[in-house]
């Protein structure tokens, strides 16, 4: 972090070659350490100042969100507010104001917590994660669908020396509704016990399109594909019931310090049911 900016290419090179060097953006996860961990801490490489990782812009059929975009910036951006209300909702429930001023979308994804609030939203919006790494004297990009990015508990598809540059979120088609609900340990500044995102659309009272994802109910954030397919084609009430019970079948929540497996499973089902039921029956 000493050489605060320099070039992104150089940063990627160093990350690939210097063991123990960790990339940092807002620091709101990385800086949480006991005094003992802090005393033994290695070195960090600051990525927060690279233009390649900043900004929000509509590009063709999608919106680009730089990895270094803070949750405060997400909430304020007109394009995000118009196209991705679920992402705004998630951003407004990440920590408190001070955290939202520092925490970034890229950091939330790289941290790979199964409880990350924004992650189910990226899943249902079918975001593409844009990665960058050094190849000789060039910065090369790689695109990975979000669905394939979190490969296991706290594990990502990032290769050594690779960083998240940003995200491409396809513009939602007409009538696609978005929902987000976080069930935390308190009203604010909480870590999720269950978090659910939905993108969907009904026609003639029946569910036509449905994407569901949840966090804190498995080792990674998960798309609830069985719940989706159980619901599509059904009338709203039946679809909600089917999605709720299928969601419980396809997830494996655990008991931990924040909640119980039984609560998480039941509440996942109830929240999925509630969110599906909240869809407009006919979006025409």
């Amino acid at each position: 972090m000493a050489e605060r900016c320099g070039s992104l290419l150089e940063a990627c090179r160093r990350l690939a070659t210097e063991p123990g060097l960790r990339p940092i953006l807002g620091g709101t996860d990385l800086m949480v350490a006991s005094p003992h961990e802090r005393a033994r801490q290695g070195r960090w490489l600051d990525l927060s100042c690279f233009d390649e990782m900043r900004g929000i812009a509509e590009r063709g059929g999608s919106v680009w969100i730089g990895a270094a975009t803070t949750f405060t910036a997400l909430q304020a951006d007109a394009s995000i507010r118009r196209h991705f209300p679920a992402l705004v909702a998630a951003a407004s429930e990440v920590g408190g104001w001070q955290i939202q001023n520092r925490a970034t979308l890229g950091g939330n994804v790289a941290n790979a917590s199964p409880a990350g609030d924004s992650l189910p939203v990226l899943a249902v919006l079918e975001a593409v994660v844009v990665l960058g790494s050094a190849a000789g004297d060039r910065l090369v990009e790689r695109r990975v669908p979000y669905a394939g990015f979190h490969v296991g508990y706290r594990a990502t598809a990032l290769a050594p020396g690779e960083v998240i540059l940003g995200f491409e979120l396809p513009l939602p088609g007409p009538g696609l509704e978005q929902r987000f609900q976080k069930v935390g340990t308190r009203q604010a500044q909480a870590i999720s016990k269950v978090v659910v995102a939905l993108a969907g659309r009904c026609a003639g009272g029946r569910v036509q399109t449905l994407r569901l994802a949840a966090g804190s109910v498995a080792a990674t954030p998960v798309r609830l594909r069985q719940a989706e397919s159980a619901a599509v084609g059904l009338e709203l009430a039946a679809a909600a019931e089917a999605a709720g019970s299928a969601a419980r079948q396809e997830t494996t929540p655990i008991d931990d310090v924040r909640s119980t497996a039984a609560y998480r499973s039941a509440v996942l089902g109830r929240v999925v049911r509630r969110l599906v039921l909240s869809l407009t029956p006919d979006s025409e």
Partner: peptide, 8 residues
């Protein structure tokens, strides 16, 4: 300020 590395 407990979560901000002074380098930033």
């Amino acid at each position: 300020s407990c979560l901000v590395p002074v380098g930033q």
